[in-house]
Every structure is written in structure tokens, then in C-alpha cells.
Design a protein around this nucleic acid. Structure first.
Lengths: 246, 246
DNA sequence: AAGTGGTCTAGACCACTGC
DNA sequence: CAGTGGTCTAGACCACTTA
């Protein structure tokens, strides 16, 4: 006949497609394998390419696929569990190999960050840029905002640039007593610069982790870390081996 | 002239649009205000509706807009901070008004959940369905999986249905000693049933929080809670007043 | 240079909401 | 019923990677 059973419930085509392809991924494909290109897949399923792309987009959002321009669409490995637990009560940069210091500079903090730090919107702060690398892959880009009030003795005029300067700022911060920290997670889209470092296109979905470092009753520093939402699962506590699938 | 300065860097139109509209939201619109409809906006900016929609999609993803079919596009209020901290070491359902029990049933757990519970893939478990309501709005739908081994004395044959039955199961669970819990957050898309309860369309982006409840060295229960990613900011610790914007 | 995914268009129809 | 956002099409061109 030709038409199947989906007249009664007009489930969107892309939703149905997503299910079909998802099942095919489980049974017929291995991690890292390359799928047929979009034009061929669309033809094979008898839909427009835009519709096929809507299905692929969802699968990529769920971490099942990975698409790279000029290369192709591949089956993604399971998401990596990234520990962001707050139990380790230390300042950033203390004996950590997970984060890689990039550089440090001075700039005015974004309004939302200035509010968290309880400083004037136009006040200059130190900004340390770091990159989190797990299993050779960049998973997060961080901006750490430190008001000069938190590191009064820091003199940046005679310090070098690049990673060395970042380490100087972090070392100065570590002289403070850390009373506690706060964390919040929300969905965002990657800014152009973050996207570049994470090897994604601008606007890619990211998990934004905002951390407030508290010292002597004040917010001594604020970190805004953007994690690749497609490849990361953020874990809290000792659940590093937690594995989920939708 | 006529053409502007964007020849060198061919920034996508929808990206530029998103910025322009985002700025307009800050300056010219109040929370809850209705935007012009998509066809008019597209005409006003001189782009196809699909392109305009790509920009709106991103803004919705970032929690700046809310779109409802048949109604229109409105300016969204700031995201609500939802506490998901693990510090409150209690079983679910203990003196909580934030969660609303819906019902309970028996079913086989999804493979990933069965793995977490360390049970056979085809083993029946109790499934409690709950809804988290904040400020009169549903923000999360939860499925709580409890293997019969965790509640050996529970006899469900003589219990009622609906919310009453859910409470019976929860009460039985609370008799166990809770040793600790684990949490993980990742991006997902809403299943059809969750979407319905969260007043969203299927496939809407959600933050999936997976919690493992530990008792006597075993995983006594697993909760999979899907939070609306557009309206929620998950907070850990005492950071309920944390406010961020991109 | 060939092949991939990313962007964009101009149109059509559908599903839902509210009057 | 009119008006909204949601889905879908068929096509074009662009940006990027690889060989």
C-alpha cells in the first residue's frame, strides 16, 4: 500500500525519524562510525533535508551524534562524567591538572557578575581564563572574575603575560581563607570565543556552571564555566561512574 | 555604500538577529509583553521566517523568550532558582511541599536505570511519579524507581490508586536508613509524557537530574527528574539568590 | 576540487488558542 | 472563526575539511 499507520496521531515526521534513527544507532552502528551524508539520508527516508536535519539536531542535543562541517556525522561516544562537586573545598588552581590556565587580564565584569561580586558595574576586575581538559578533549571554558579587593597585594605591572600571569593571579587568590562555595547550573548557548575553544560552532548548547567563592562573608571571586552540553554529564558527589541514557 | 561592515566576518544572519532582538528585549520590552508575530518580525528585519525563527529559538533556549502555539511570543521572566542540593539528607517525600505525588505503578525499569540499581533488566520495580511545582508553575517531572528489594514489606494489592498509593510507597521507602546520595545533571529532550505535564512540546530541552539513593551499601532507589531548561536554574548549596544572565 | 554540514529563502499547510 | 506558532518542502548558496 504505501501509507503506514500514522494517520490517527499526526506525530511530527522529525520526531518519528529521530526514533527510527536512534534505534538504528543502537543496533547497526558502532561508536565513531560515519553515517551517510544528510542528502542521502533525507532521500532514503523520503523527507526534505531540513526535516532530516531537525531529527539529527535532536540526536546531537542528546549526545548521540556528533556533526562536523566538512567532515560528516558520526556516532558519539557516551557522555563523559565531569565532576563539579563542591565538596573539595579549595580555591581554583590548587594542585589541579584538570584545568589548564590560559591567561589573565583586566576588564570590567559583565553586569550580572558585578552584581554577584557586589561591586560597581564599571569596576575593573582580574579575569583568568582557563580550559578544562578531560581525556585529551576540551570540555569546558571558564572565566574567573576576581575583584582587586580580593587580591590587594597583587601587582600585575611586572608580571608576564599568558599562562604565567594566570598562575600568579591564582596563587595570590589562594592566600585567602575559603569559607565556602555556591553553585548553579543552567542551559545557555556558547559565545563565539568559548565556542572556538570548545571546538563547536557559536550558539552550541552549553551547561553554564556559575560558582561563587566565599571568603570572610564576602564573594571573593566568581567563576562562569561553560561545559559542552553534548559531550558532558556533570556529576555531584562520588557518582563518577553514573551512566544514563535517555 | 549601502552595505555595512560585515563582509570580512560573515556572521550568520540569525546570530546577528539574535543579538539585535536580545538588546531590544532589554531596552524596549517588559516581562510578559507580547512581541509582534513571527511573520511581521521577519518582514520587519527583511529575512525569511525560518531565519527569524532560528534566532527566536536561541533566545528561548536561553530563557529570554517564551513561545506558545496559538498564543504568541512573550518576554520571559528571569529563570527561577530551583534548589537541588544534596545536603538535605532525606528520602524523597519527607515533609516536602515542593513535590506533588501523582501516582505509583509497577513496571520494568529502563535498561540504564536497571544498571544503576544493579538488578535484572526485566525485573519489575515500583515507579512513583511526582511533579515539582514552584510558584504555581510545574518545573519538573520525576520518575522514582524503587526495586521491591528496597521495600520488602510493601503490599500493593490492597492499596488504592493515584496519589494515595504513591504516598504509601514513599512512606515505606522512608523506613530505610539513608546513607547518602549521588547526583548527575545532563541535557536531554522531553519525552512526550513529561512534555505534557511540563506544558511544553515533546523534544523541548530539559535538564535531566539523576539521583542515586544509597542505603546499606546498595542503591536503594533511583530518581530521574526532568527540569524545564528554559525556565529553571538548578542551584546547589545556599545559592538560591544567585542571578545570572548571558 | 569534491564532498560535507551550515545557512537561507519563499512558500505551503497544520495544530492550537482564543474570541 | 481568525491569528498564532509548529512542521515541511525543494531548492540555492556558503564555509569548511580533506585529499
Amino acid at each position: 500500500m504505501g501509507t503506514t499507520q500514522l494517520e490517527s496521531v499526526p506525530e511530527p515526521k522529525y520526531w518519528h525519524l529521530k526514533t527510527v534513527i536512534g534505534e538504528a544507532l543502537d543496533s547497526d552502528f558502532a561508536v565513531g562510525e560515519i553515517l551517510p551524508n544528510e542528502r542521502e539520508l533525507a532521500a532514503r527516508f523520503g523527507v526534505a533535508r531540513a526535516t532530516l536535519r531537525q531529527a539529527l539536531e535532536q540526536l546531537e542535543l542528546e549526545g548521540r551524534l556528533q556533526r562536523r562541517r566538512g567532515v560528516g556525522t558520526t556516532v558519539a561516544p557516551p557522555r563523559v562524567g565531569v565532576d563539579v562537586s563542591t565538596t573539595q573545598h579549595t580555591w581554583p588552581g590548587v594542585a589541579e591538572e584538570t584545568w589548564q590556565s590560559m591567561d589573565a587580564s583586566s576588564a570590567v565584569a559583565p553586569p550580572a557578575v558585578a552584581r554577584l561580586l557586589d561591586i560597581e558595574p564599571d569596576e575593573q576586575v582580574h579575569v583568568v581564563r582557563r580550559l578544562r581538559v578531560t581525556q585529551e578533549q576540551p570540555v569546558a571554558a571558564e572565566l574567573l572574575y576576581i575583584p582587586s579587593g580580593s587580591v590587594p597585594e597583587l601587582n600585575v605591572t611586572d608580571t608576564p603575560t599568558g599562562p604565567a600571569r594566570a598562575r600568579v593571579v591564582l596563587r595570590e587568590l589562594q592566600r585567602l581563607a575559603l569559607d565556602g562555595q555556591d553553585r548553579a547550573v543552567e542551559l545557555g548557548s556558547a559565545r563565539a570565543d568559548d565556542a572556538k575553544e570548545l571546538d563547536r560552532l557559536p550558539g552550541a548548547p552549553v551547561l553554564v556552571v556559575t560558582t561563587r567563592y566565599l571568603s570572610e562573608g564576602r564573594t571573593a571571586a566568581v567563576s562562569v564555566a561553560t561545559y559542552r552540553a553534548d559531550t558532558c554529564r556533570l556529576t555531584f558527589g562520588d557518582s563518577g561512574d553514573l551512566v544514563m541514557a535517555s
